Simulated assay, not measured.
Amino acid sequence: MTDILLRRDSDRVAILTLNRPAARNALSLGLMEALDAELAVIADNPAIHVVVISANGPAFCAGHDLREIRANPTRQDYEQVFALCSRLMQRIVRLPKPVIAQVHGVATAAGCQLVASADLAVAADTARFATPGVDIGLFCSTPMVALSRAVGRKAAMEMLLTGDMVSAERAREFGLINRVVPEAALDDAVLSLARQIAAKSPLTVAIGKEAFYRQAEMDLAAAYDYASKVMTRNMLARDAAEGIDAFLAKRPPVWTGT
């Protein structure tokens, strides 16, 4: 039986690959459970500094597995699917390591949610994005949570209300993705970005990622108060002292992650 989630580690980067190509990598219960479990393991692995989520086949992710969902049409089953999906997306946000989505083909509905939940996203110039639930009578309400936090309200509402496909370049313009590259260059572009971030102090990156999302939920005064406390805690870390001393001495820093 083929594994529905593959993992390959490369120089402090864990590359997780969705591997249901025949189903366009739809997020079945099994795939969501596998991805959630693997991220939980990676969270405690000091050897991994960055995570990449990629996919095999013609699409990045076509959303939830609608055939699986309709095969079990009870409230309890529906609640299980969306609770698991919500837990997975929050796992990505709370993971103390940056997550990069590597997108090719289409990323629709919960697949678009996966992209929006990642910290960074790099897409092939042929990639397309949509939240088309409205077209089948099922508004993309859970994808909306991630989408509305990644892009402006008008752009999010346009995607949610029309269900239209959005090009990679348009997605970059309104902030859903960071970079657009030729499809043939996608693997190298993502790995280069991942390795650049993986070379930073893992402690500093973890502190910064957590602080970014927490302060975004606060009002301005509370955000500054919280961020000041975070910077003080960060300044007391060995890596901060090492980084500043290395900068002043004009030498490369040696990170310890402490």
Rank of each mutant, 00 (worst) to 15 (best):
L160C: 05
L161N: 06
A146E: 10
D164E: 11
R214Q: 15
A241K: 13
P46N: 07
G63W: 03
P46T: 04
Y78A: 14
A71S: 14
D44I: 04
K97Y: 04
R233D: 15
Q113C: 06
A223F: 08
I48R: 04
T74C: 04
L5F: 03
A206Q: 09
A83G: 00
M1W: 15
T204S: 14
D65S: 10
S28A: 12
F60S: 02
T2V: 15
R70D: 13
G175N: 03
M32C: 08
A101T: 02
I15G: 00
A216V: 02
A222C: 04
E173F: 08
L248H: 06
A156H: 03
A156M: 02
A155P: 01
C112G: 02
M89W: 02
R251S: 13
V180E: 05
A37C: 02
D36G: 01
I53V: 13
D11P: 03
V41E: 11
R214S: 12
L160G: 05
Y213K: 05
A240E: 07
R128C: 12
Q80N: 12
K200F: 14
A150C: 14
D164G: 06
R149I: 01
A34Y: 00
P96Q: 09
A40L: 10
Q196P: 00
D245G: 10
S148Y: 11
S117G: 07
A246K: 06
E158P: 00
R214P: 06
R20A: 09
A107R: 00
L120D: 02
E210A: 15
R20S: 10
D125C: 14
C61K: 04
F247W: 13
L66M: 10
A26I: 01
R67M: 08
S10I: 10
W255D: 09
L193T: 04
Y213C: 09
V180R: 10
I92M: 08
L147N: 04
L6Y: 03
V181E: 07
P58L: 14
F129L: 01
P182V: 13
L138S: 09
T204A: 15
F60H: 05
R70C: 08
I92G: 00
Q90C: 08
R214G: 07
A130I: 07
G111I: 06
P132A: 07
L39M: 13
A227D: 14
A121C: 02
R7G: 07
A22K: 11
D239I: 11
A110C: 05
K154S: 13
L31E: 02
Q102V: 01
Q196R: 13
R238V: 15
Y224Q: 10
L6D: 11
A156C: 09
G133F: 08
K200D: 13
I244D: 02
K154G: 04
L84F: 05
A34D: 08
R172F: 06
Q113P: 00
V230C: 04
P58E: 12
E173L: 08
A223K: 03
R238T: 15
V81M: 12
V151I: 14
H104R: 07
A55I: 09
N56D: 13
L84Y: 05
L236F: 09
E173N: 11
V145W: 01
C61N: 14
L138V: 15
C61W: 06
L203D: 03
Y213T: 11
P182A: 12
I42A: 01
V134H: 04
L16T: 06
D245T: 13
G175Y: 12
F212V: 11
A198D: 10
T162P: 00
L31V: 08
V99Q: 01
Q90I: 02
E33N: 06
L5I: 11
Y213M: 06
